[in-house]
């Protein structure tokens, strides 16, 4: 018995129509535009070969955005993974009320990066905010969290970590709960201490989760973080919080450098391809499955 020959194609039309129009077409047009110099109103185009890419890598502003992105992504993702795992361990027990704490701790997951940015802008506000008051009161420190030089980037990172942590915790918690109890019991019988069980047994068993989380949190911190940056610092002061995505936004819509913006899109696209490839090439092989 067979169902119609053309049915699967009909079923796939809606999905592919959207994907081709709104993912493939812009991607191809990014590649094409990246080889042209385009006048601000888009009416004239000159083929310039790789000039846009060469200019980008000569431009201080772009190199700076790469540096900021690397610092931001590395610190944020590392913290989110590390603290996410630790907090998940704390929540992975059946103490009374743990469900209530879980709900409270998961909350930032449900809000947007933009709203996270708004909440922290308020808390870090020098006049009405609580953080400066307490730091001043107890440590005698007061800082311009959103406009001072290393502080703005630190604020962005703290907010992002706060916003992104629940995602890691949720996955680690699910992972921890799927570890069979016999494994832990036999580890106890073998005389391991708690610390060894946490890092030598549970953590390696959760490596598929860790691997997936690293990939996801890299994408979140590279792209979704735009909301936090735009609300809190707008890339300033002196571009110390201008990440690659914020640079792309500025060059696309403020400075109207169409060609260079397209080249930036191409670079980001290649980075994402690399990450996807890496995930499926090595993710399946090197991680430990139970």
């Amino acid at each position: 018995m067979k169902w119609g020959k053309y049915t699967p194609f009909l079923l796939l039309i809606p999905t592919f129509l959207i994907i081709i129009l709104f993912i493939y077409w812009p991607t191809i047009s990014s590649f094409m535009l990246s080889f042209y110099k385009v006048s601000p109103f888009g009416d004239r185009k000159i083929f310039v070969g790789f000039d846009n890419f060469i200019n980008l890598f000569k431009s201080q502003a772009y190199l700076n955005s790469i540096k900021v992105t690397i610092i931001y992504v590395v610190i944020t993702v590392f913290s989110v993974i590390f603290f996410g795992y630790l907090i998940a361990l704390l929540l992975d027990n059946k103490v009374f009320g743990v469900k209530f704490y879980r709900t409270l701790i998961f909350t930032p997951y449900a809000i947007s990066f933009t709203i996270a940015g708004a909440l922290w802008t308020f808390m870090l506000n020098p006049v009405a905010g609580h953080i400066n008051y307490f730091l001043d009161r107890f440590f005698g420190i007061s800082a311009n969290w959103l406009t001072g030089q290393p502080f703005a980037l630190i604020s962005i990172m703290i907010t992002s970590i706060w916003k992104m942590l629940p995602f890691s915790i949720i996955f680690y918690l699910a992972g921890l709960q799927s570890i069979p109890e016999e494994v832990i019991e036999s580890a106890i019988i073998d005389g391991t201490n708690n610390w060894q069980r946490i890092w030598k047994i549970k953590f390696p068993m959760l490596s598929p989760t860790t691997f997936y989380l690293i990939i996801m949190e890299i994408t979140h911190s590279m792209f979704e973080s735009f909301g936090i940056i735009d609300i809190m610092t707008k890339g300033g002061p002196v571009e110390t919080t201008t990440t690659m995505i914020y640079r792309l936004y500025l060059d696309s819509f403020y400075f109207q450098k169409t060609g260079e913006a397209a080249a930036q899109s191409v670079i980001l696209f290649l980075i994402m391809c690399f990450i996807t490839f890496f995930y499926f090439r090595f993710g399946e092989k090197t991680v430990h499955y139970q």
Binding site: F22, S30, L33, F223, F226, Y249, S252, S265, L268, F269
Partner: peptide, 8 residues
Amino acid sequence: AETVMILP
């Protein structure tokens, strides 16, 4: 794509 390819 809506982020990376925002301009096109």
